[in-house]
Nucleic acid binder design. Structure first.
Lengths: 250, 250
DNA sequence: ACGTTCGATCATAATTTCTGTTTGTTCGCA
DNA sequence: TGCGAACAAACAGAAATTATGATCGAACGT
């Protein structure tokens, strides 16, 4: 399990400092340069860093959205708690549309073994739940965006025309008092908007790091959200609650 | 790699003889009973065998459709050849609907790296192609049938209303002169029929073992198929060719 | 109630994955 | 074009993972 920890340290060093040389990394981690190179190759394949001759640079220097593999390592504990809390809010027999993303993936995990109907917008969660005997799974149609493995487009919206889910679990790239819920990719925003409009209630999930962030694509205003589940402290959620939003803190 | 071989032998012994006791299997395979039990547990989880106290019985004694894990080990070499042949029939830039099944899964594998648009009806192939940079992937909507991981239902048919694929690669449980193309699950037959009707051309794939088989659900007559790719010998395909079906032998 | 089968646990064995060294090649810079 | 650093491939030893068989108390079926 040391290899994983090392790669994580490595990713943090590179993305934290922007650019670090291979021999520098090897010295810091106390391993050979060959190992660093191999690790960097792996991380590059996952889009976490970028290689240049002699060193590695952060992949997300100016990127709007960090790659999934990067986000999957961030704030994992908070996301897990949020996932469990959302699952607790969902009753047996409910039908649920589950947004794509690292936080909603935790919701999917927490729903395993529950007698519910789930349509995940992310392929990863679809596969996660595929072998579960209790969950009734519905696949969403649509274009699969590589990397994220999220479905978008016309076909994805059709599902929300045809099916009326009880609950939509909405993931967000940004939650802001003024701009409401936003996401990096406008095409995703379209699908999310269709979901919010079609589903009975919308539960938004967002860890604290999303607060005050305004991303490119606007999804909906906060008034369209019925419930926000987050790990943010009272001081951060007070403003939102003042706007009438119900907040569940984990 | 010995463990896999042993499990395969074990599966063949059980499914071949219908029922074998644990100690008998342990003696035959030259390993401990504990190992046999563990193997049987794994095979049972995959639906290959069924456990009873003291022995294992074939899971598919009277089952209409063998589980995916069983079929995946059968006639693999023929399926692979068929997959490559079908991929060769498909031009760059084409849009393809890809049926679920073990044979069509090979077609998907053979399409990796090709600049084509693919919508696989099976989740396994969807995931197989998910990390391919060249293939443009479209996910089909619909209910996910556990075990097979194939999508069915209304939503799956919607995709064929909205999108016009150049080619449908049709997998079959049975190919028969009189009954045409048949499949075990009627719900699947509905989707396949919608696909045949919507796509520009239909390429059917079927290894020799499917010949003369008539399954429960009727998909279409042979006249609806433009091309049949198979490993069957000329003697087996002569009748079909006499009916006007174009056959590609691999 | 009896003998058999089972599943959990553990120590050992087999296998896979990981890692550092070596070697020769490629790359970037002057 | 030539130099030094960075690189990739190959290999061998190390580390981690997985598979295996033995043992024992519990569960099972007759």
């Amino acid at each position: 399990m040391n290899a994983k920890a090392r790669r994580r340290t490595l990713a943090e060093a590179v993305n934290g400092r922007g650019s670090v040389s291979v021999n520098e990394l090897a010295a810091e981690l106390g391993c050979s340069e060959m190992t660093v190179r191999r690790d960097l190759d792996l991380l590059e394949r996952d889009g976490v860093v970028r290689r240049v001759h002699g060193s590695a640079v952060a992949a997300s220097l100016r990127a709007h959205e960090k790659p999934y593999a990067v986000r999957a390592f961030e704030r994992t504990e908070a996301k897990e708690r949020i996932g469990i809390a959302v699952a607790a809010l969902i009753g047996d027999g409910e039908t649920i549309a589950l947004d794509a993303g690292t936080t909603t993936a935790e919701v999917g995990r927490a729903l395993r073994g529950r007698p519910v109907t789930v349509m995940p917008l992310g392929i990863r969660t679809l596969v996660d739940l595929a072998y579960d005997d209790h969950v009734r799974l519905i696949a969403p149609g649509g274009d699969v965006r590589v990397g994220e493995l999220v479905v978008t487009g016309d076909l994805a919206e059709v599902a929300f025309e045809r099916l009326r889910f009880d609950t939509f679990v909405l993931g967000a790239c940004g939650i802001d008092e003024g701009s409401g819920v936003t996401t990096h990719v406008p095409a995703d925003a379209r699908v999310k908007r269709a979901a919010v409009a079609s589903c009975g209630r919308t539960i938004a999930v967002a860890d604290w790091s999303k607060f005050g962030v305004v991303a490119f694509g606007h999804v909906c205003s906060l008034s369209a959200v019925d419930l926000l589940v987050t790990d943010a402290p009272p001081s951060a959620t007070a403003q939102l609650e003042a706007l009438g939003l119900t907040v569940v803190r984990v």
